[in-house]
Design a protein around this nucleic acid. Structure first.
Length: 672
DNA sequence: TCTCACACCTTTGAAGTGG
DNA sequence: CCACTTCAAAGGTGTGAGA
């Protein structure tokens, strides 16, 4: 294992766009290596870039220059667009305007009231409430990859004191970041829109050496899930594709290894079918314990009052949440949760809450259980819909993944890892707004020390509850593809080796990295974008994301505030970027130069910034060359197909040989 | 604060059964 | 052959004791 790379160890000369001409497609194609050569790997698998370049990127003067030019060009592009002829059917067919609706929002909101705690364990725990979203506005024929990642919401460590969460100090070092790629990805917009996109398989862990591809979090730290929509017909093309990122503040949570807040515990028990055994109304341990307590009380008390008190006490034992649910607002919400945002899903809870539930066990009666199961199956539109989609996608999910827990052994969702920190903010709640207050392009180019040229390949924005956020988080796949799993999980020991070396090690020097990855993962192996092979038996550690929101960068933590910033809404942690009119926008233009539009509907969260002067040429590339336009699919003109079939065969053979070696390696590793 | 074993529960698919 | 039921295994959950 080599020492971390020193600046002089960079394999390639990076391309740092700084002038208007640098933003042209030709310039970027001419000067940029396909694999973002400005980035190198440290021995930890993290990314490294020369200090001088970092400083240059962080130079606010450069940032301002870039921003102003970008804004001006954006404005010009907007003006010229007005003069352009009407869209043709062909162009319309390839356009999209994704909007994302957070499902089960009421549930999230309710949890958020209490400062949602999300349990993380060494063996991994699912998120509850599950992160689910409904997409609209996608191009029906285009293919999309949907991802979720979880980033630190601030730079603090928390403690639960006096029944509330308080800051207890500075955050611990961040865990390697991973992205969870929905196992159905890629799928057509039609398929995504036909169902609720459910990320309930996403698992959280505090095990830094986790080998299952779970999302690694720090206990007692606050996190924010993010949802990404990427138009691409292949995972390989993620780094070249446009990211649209959506953030829902109510999904923010504090990771814990044990519940601190009883209210949260009770909410989860009441709403999570797996925790049914702990419900007061069930026959689980809690009920038995309660009954045991009542019996003891009966024995201990000589008066007959206890007999009357028993049921009262039992009822009184219900937590405030339950009491709340049983009456007004929360009760309605509780029932509402199961109807709203659940993809028309009626959970088991709903079924039970709507009917008088006897104290006797329901499920011990087989018939009753069967009927309940049947009802659940019928009313749970989520799974049937997913099945429908699965059938559309050729049953891959059914066989390999998404909804079948056992299938996860064969195919786990893609995860993407980097140890690049990914704070949404490093400034804490009080100054959170700063974090998202950078103009998106500035953010992309300046704030992210890793976002060199490849960052240009992304074009995204983050939206927040109807407030459009710009592309803080959108850097994603560029980094993702750069990063290699850390935490000593790289079995091949390739971390820390420059790209070229890694390729050599992988034994597929002539093979495009992403092609390697694809091929390898298709065989159940995890391969880093650089050819590093992970011991994760079934998951992809694919392109990793640290999606790093710029916030994760040191600069971000330094709270650099852009000159032109305007709070669009009062204290909101995520604010849309604002670029003042000084950059050349007409006064009556309410749309920032990046085309980011503020939206009032909390659920309609995103607009692409395809017209961004920066993004435009790049946008052009993924859309015309890389992305999965239906026309391209039909014509077979995708980028991947540029590889000749003979080359593919050679590469596949190469991979096959390599895989054999890996298998044996893994076997040895597992036996040791 | 974390880890682990545990009981209780749901989910899933295979096997069995009957029309 | 199909639909339905039964069963077992796998997996998800919070709890509570102990470290």
């Amino acid at each position: 294992m080599r020492d971390p790379l020193v600046p002089g160890d960079m394999a390639f000369q990076p391309f740092l766009p700084n002038t208007a001409s640098d933003f042209t497609l030709d310039a970027m194609l001419a000067r940029q290596s396909p694999f973002f050569p400005a980035i190198a790997l440290t021995s930890h698998g993290s990314l490294h870039m020369p200090v001088a370049q970092r400083h240059r990127m962080l130079d606010p003067v450069n940032a301002e220059t870039i921003l102003r030019k970008a804004s001006l060009e954006q404005h010009n592009a907007t003006q010229s667009a007005k003069l352009s002829p009407p869209k043709t059917l062909e162009t319309e067919a390839t356009e999209d305007d994704p909007k994302v609706h957070l499902e089960a929002r009421h549930l999230w909101t309710q949890f958020h009231k209490f400062g949602t705690e999300m349990v993380i364990t060494k063996s991994g725990r699912r998120m509850f409430p599950p992160f689910k979203a409904r997409c609209t506005g996608l191009n029906q024929r285009a293919k999309y990859i949907l991802l979720v990642d979880i980033v630190a919401a601030d730079d603090f460590r928390y403690k639960f004191h006096n029944s509330r969460w308080m800051v207890s100090g500075k955050a611990d070092p961040e865990m390697p970041k991973r992205m969870y790629i929905h196992p159905d990805s890629p799928a057509s917009g039609e398929q995504w829109m036909s169902k609720v996109v459910n990320f309930h398989k996403l698992k959280l862990t505090n095990n830094i050496s986790d080998k299952h591809g779970f999302t690694i979090l720090n206990s007692m730290h606050k996190y924010q899930p993010r949802f990404h929509v990427v138009r691409a017909n292949d995972i390989l093309k993620l780094p070249y594709s446009t990211f649209r990122t959506y953030v829902f503040s109510e999904t923010e949570f504090i990771a814990v290894t044990a519940y601190q807040n009883d209210k949260i515990t009770q909410l989860k028990i009441d709403n999570n079918p797996f925790a049914k055994g702990f419900r007061d109304t069930g026959n689980g341990r809690r009920e038995k314990k309660k009954q045991l307590g009542i019996n003891i009380q009966k024995f201990s008390e000589t008066s007959g009052d206890s007999l009357d008190e028993a049921p009262l006490k039992s009822a009184g034992n219900a937590t405030s949440i339950e009491a709340c649910q049983s009456d007004n607002e929360s009760g309605q919400e509780s029932k509402h949760w199961n109807h709203v945002g659940q993809d028309l899903r009626k959970t088991t809870n709903t079924t039970e809450e709507l009917k008088p539930e006897p104290n006797v066990t329901t499920f011990h009666d087989k018939a009753d259980r069967a009927s309940t199961d049947s009802l659940r199956t019928e009313t749970d539109s989520e799974d049937p819909k997913e099945d429908h989609v699965n059938s559309i996608t050729g049953g891959m999910t059914r066989r390999f993944g998404a909804e079948d827990p056992r299938a996860t052994e064969h195919f786990q969702p893609l995860t993407v890892e980097t140890d690049q920190s990914a704070h949404i903010t490093g400034l804490g709640r009080s100054s959170f707004s700063h974090c998202y207050s950078y103009p998106p392009d500035w953010t992309r180019y300046i704030l992210n020390p890793l976002g060199v040229a490849h960052r240009l390949l992304h074009n995204a924005q983050v939206n927040m509850q109807g407030e459009t956020l710009s592309s803080v988080a959108a850097t994603a796949m560029g980094h993702m593809l750069m990063a290699v799993s850390s935490g000593g999980v790289c079995t091949m020991g390739t971390a820390g080796i420059p790209v070229s070396s890694v390729q050599r090690v992988s034994g597929t020097s002539g093979l495009p990295l992403n092609f390697q990855q694809h091929a390898m993962t298709s065989q159940g192996l995890t391969v880093s974008p650089f050819g590093a092979i992970f011991p994760y038996p079934y998951s992809h550690l694919a392109p990793t994301a640290a999606l790093s929101t710029t916030a994760s960068t040191p600069v971000h933590r330094r709270s650099v505030t852009p000159v032109h910033r305007r709070p669009v809404r009062p204290p909101t942690r995520f604010r849309p970027y604002f670029i003042s009119n000084s950059v050349g926008l007409p006064d009556n233009c309410s749309t920032p130069p990046t085309s980011i539009r503020l939206m009032t509907d909390r659920d309609l969260n995103c607009h692409t910034i395809a017209n961004s002067p920066i993004a435009a040429p790049l946008h052009c590339r993924p859309m015309s060359e890389v992305n999965s336009d239906s026309s391209l699919q039909s014509s077979g003109a995708s980028a991947a197909k540029r590889v000749s079939s003979k080359d593919c065969m050679d590469q596949l053979q190469c991979i096959q040989q390599l895989v054999s070696g890996i298998d044996s390696y893994q076997d040895r590793d597992s036996y040791s």
